[in-house]
């Protein structure tokens, strides 16, 4: 009983602190006379404004049965047929001239923030795949008995971990990108995957080394060669053990992808900056951007937790 009420008390303390923080943000914005304009944000995520279709030539509008608008040209162009629309702006038999509004179509346009989110997602997923491949091979090379492989791997890991990602992105884009004629996206993906690969290599190495040597001996004693033993026995176990640090690294990758905005890739962060300059609502935009990153990273960590749970069947 005693214990129970204490737990409740501390949960209440937590809620109070969160409310306090929220109030702090509100009071802070009050003190600098900031006017919140949240209503400006949604259109940059999904734009529901109707688009107007205009006449491409002079002609006559006819409304056929089945609610089809057909505009026949005065000069023999192919007739324009519009099958779906929401608001009709011309009547049957009206003469229309080039540029006249004909109909309004209500459609959902994806706003720049969403495009940024999609770009961030693309960057992250592609980089993640390459980073895992690079990391796996670098990690295996790191524990190889072949000195050439081992030293190469150590050099790679130390070089990449010892320099800032921002500098690497510039090097990849301005130097390697120029030499190999890479576009922005490729250069960005290359920089991100090479950077993350170095960290994954260390995670892979520690994962493999955490598996008891007896496992390799047992696999080899059954006639498996090194590769078979790695693939069937060691790596599946190491994979499970390295999931938590891997999840952290993947989340870092999503967040680090914001740095490629410096080479003019319109990811979520760059989109945010652009939207700020057209809305003059920096607080709202950056909060919205932060929330969108949180959705990505939250979904990822949820998925990995699910995977961990599924793999724990053999525990």
């Amino acid at each position: 009983m005693e214990k129970q009420s204490h737990l409740l008390l501390w949960k209440a303390v937590f809620v109070l602190i969160i409310i306090g923080l929220g109030f702090g943000i509100y009071a802070g914005s009050k003190s600098i006379d900031y006017t919140w304009r949240w209503e400006r944000i949604p259109q940059y995520i999904i734009n529901t404004e109707a688009t107007t279709v205009r006449a491409p030539f002079d002609g006559t509008a006819t409304i056929e049965k089945g609610n089809r608008l057909v505009v026949t040209s005065d000069y023999g162009d192919d007739p324009l047929v519009i099958k779906k629309f929401d608001n009709l702006l011309v009547g049957h038999g009206d003469l229309v001239f080039e540029g006249d509004p004909l109909v309004e179509v209500e459609n959902w346009n994806i706003g720049p923030l969403t495009w940024g989110l999609v770009m961030t997602l693309q960057l992250s997923v592609v980089s993640l795949v390459f980073a895992v491949v690079i990391g796996l091979f670098a990690g295996l090379a790191r524990i190889s008995s072949n000195p050439a492989l081992r030293y190469l791997s150590i050099t790679y890991i130390e070089l990449i971990r010892g320099t800032p990602l921002l500098v690497q992105i510039f090097i990849f884009y301005f130097f390697i990108g120029t030499v190999l004629d890479l576009d922005r996206f490729t250069a960005g993906v290359a920089a991100l995957s090479v950077f993350t690969g170095a960290y994954i290599a260390e995670i892979v190495r520690s994962g493999i080394q955490s598996i008891s040597p007896g496992q390799m001996e047992a696999a080899r004693s059954l006639g498996m060669n090194y590769v078979q033993a790695m693939v069937n026995v060691i790596l599946p176990q190491a994979f499970k053990r390295t999931l938590p640090p891997m999840a952290g690294q993947f989340i870092n990758l999503i967040k680090d992808s914001s740095l490629v905005s410096v080479i003019s890739i319109t990811d979520l962060t760059k989109a945010g900056r652009e939207v700020v300059s057209s809305t003059f609502a920096p607080f709202e935009v950056w909060f919205a951007v932060a929330l969108m990153y949180l959705v990505l990273t939250g979904a990822l960590s949820w998925a990995i937790q699910r995977l961990e749970k599924r793999l724990s069947a053999s525990d």
Binding site: S212, G214, Q215, E217, A218, S221, L222, Q237, S314
Partner: peptide, 16 residues
């Protein structure tokens, strides 16, 4: 090694 089976003190079963 296919012809020579081995049993270890610590079993070394594959836990997965």
């Amino acid at each position: 090694r296919e012809e020579v089976g081995m049993v270890f003190q610590s079993f070394n079963l594959f836990p997965h």
